[in-house]
Each structure stands twice: as structure tokens, then as C-alpha cells.
């Protein structure tokens, strides 16, 4: 079996009084695609943000790509170079062109020279189908194009693992497909990916493993055919019923 790129052990995270993660254990192996599904507020984003230390866990241990990010003495900036992050809101740098968005961290963080950074950036823009948009400003792109540029930006750092936090949730329905197909292609190329998503079809077809989270814990995990196809836990079944067939859910309270 491949080595674990992401290893999370007994992770706890609270915001003030509110305990959001109540002891999470999980791992992502090299080349694996792991999808996290679950209802709103269950702690999916918080888990993902703990993995690259955008949120500071209260307890537990997280090792990513050989860096123990929860170690107070770790060089977190160095650890983050190996962790690509894609946000729901894209977060492209608004004052920089698409190409500059892709080169700025390569040059300032990885100290690549301009020619090399440009070459890497253009290769990745090509990969996400935005080669001709290198000179555009982010505001001139559609949401789907922005998200693909954001993916290319993360890829330009040659990360060992990519984290996606609901990358298509902010997109108009007709733009979702482009972004998903880029992610699909990445998975096929063997990229290690940890993806929070509501796209069940994507999870079913691309994921090696699906985690169902509810109320700060992992309720059920396994291959997608099991977790999405034949869920064992009542809470998973309920969630999937609501997500896959939203119009056929009885109004809560009406069933009693």
C-alpha cells in the first residue's frame, strides 16, 4: 500500500464553546482521491482548513507530506508549499493578471526565475484550458474560468496533495462541468486529492474513498459504491436521500 500523504489523528477543533471537530481520524494515501461529504455545518471545511493549518486545531496530530503541521516548531510556510488549496470563492489575487497569479508564489516563495515560473504557469494554464487567458485580469473571467485558474495556481507550486473546499458550489450550474472535468483529469494523472464536495456523481466516479461527516465526526467511510451506493448508517441514508432527491423529502415534522 502507498504511504500516507495526509495523516490526521484524533483531531479536535472548537470555536469558543462550539466543538466543531470531535476527534477525527483519517488518512489520504499517495495518488488517492478522498471525497468528504456531509450536511452543512458538519465541519468539512474546518477539517480541510486544519490540514493546511488555516485553522489551528485544539488537539490532535496532522502530518502532511512528511511535515507535522501541528508541531509548533514546524516551518508552516514550507509545509504549505506542498499543499495546494482551492477555495469555494476562488480567491484569485484581484490586482494581478492570471499569469501573475500563477507566477507570484513560484517566484517569491520557490525563488524560481521569471522564465521558469512563466513556463510552469503556462503549462498549467494549458492543462486547465485557459492558455489564452494568461493576460486577463481575474475580474474578466467567468466563475468557472476563475476556479480553473485557481486550480492552475495551486498546481504551479508542484504540490504533493491538493485540497478542494467545495470548488463548484459558487458556480452557475452550466460552469460546474468544466471545473469537475479538470479535477477528473488531475485524478487520472495520479494527483493526491482531498475534496469536500456536494457533487455526488463526481464522488461516485472519481473517489477512491468517501467520508461521510456529520456533527463533527466521521460517521461512515469506504469506497463510494458502499458509502453512496449502499450506505449502512441511518444518518448517511438520510443525508443522501435529501441530496440526491431533494424534492421527495418529506417536510421535517410532517412525518410524525
Amino acid at each position: 500500500m502507498n504511504e500516507a500523504i495526509v495523516e490526521v489523528v484524533d483531531l479536535h477543533k472548537s470555536f469558543g464553546e462550539l466543538e466543531v471537530l470531535k476527534g477525527i481520524d483519517m488518512s489520504v494515501r499517495r495518488g488517492e482521491v478522498v471525497c468528504i461529504i456531509g450536511p452543512s455545518g458538519s465541519g468539512k471545511s474546518t477539517l480541510l482548513r486544519c490540514v493546511n493549518f488555516l485553522e489551528e486545531p485544539n488537539a490532535g496530530r496532522i502530518v502532511v507530506n512528511g511535515f507535522e503541521v501541528t508541531d509548533p516548531d514546524v516551518d508552516i510556510d514550507r509545509a504549505r508549499r506542498g499543499i495546494g488549496m482551492v477555495f469555494q470563492a476562488f480567491n484569485l489575487f484581484g490586482h494581478l493578471s492570471v499569469l501573475e497569479n500563477l507566477t507570484i508564489a513560484q517566484r517569491k516563495v520557490l525563488k524560481r526565475d521569471r522564465a521558469e515560473a512563466d513556463a510552469v504557469a503556462r503549462k498549467n494554464l494549458e492543462k486547465v484550458g485557459l492558455a489564452e487567458k494568461a493576460g486577463a485580469m481575474p475580474a474578466q473571467l467567468s466563475g468557472g474560468q476563475q476556479q480553473r485558474a485557481a486550480i492552475a495556481r495551486a498546481l504551479s507550486m508542484d504540490p504533493a496533495v491538493m485540497l478542494f473546499d467545495e470548488p463548484t458550489s459558487a458556480l452557475d450550474p452550466e460552469l460546474v462541468g468544466d471545473v469537475l472535468s479538470v479535477m477528473r483529469q488531475l485524478a487520472e494523472e495520479g494527483m493526491t486529492m482531498l475534496v469536500v464536495t456536494h457533487e455526488m456523481q463526481f464522488a461516485r466516479e472519481v473517489a477512491d474513498k468517501v467520508l461521510f461527516m456529520d456533527d463533527g465526526g466521521i460517521v461512515e467511510e469506504g469506497p463510494p459504491a458502499q458509502v453512496i451506493g449502499e450506505p449502512r448508517q441511518q444518518r448517511t441514508k438520510g443525508f443522501l436521500a435529501r441530496v440526491l432527491n431533494p424534492t421527495h423529502v418529506p417536510v421535517t415534522g410532517a412525518e410524525t
Binding site: 508549499r81 480567491n91 508564489a105 485557481a150
Partner: peptide, 11 residues
């Protein structure tokens, strides 16, 4: 989000 994106890139 701008700050988070930059930090995520290792800045």
C-alpha cells in the same frame, strides 16, 4: 480570502 490564498501558497 486573499490572505488565506497567499498563506496557502506558502507566503
Amino acid at each position: 480570502g486573499q490572505v488565506e490564498a497567499a498563506r496557502s501558497l506558502g507566503m
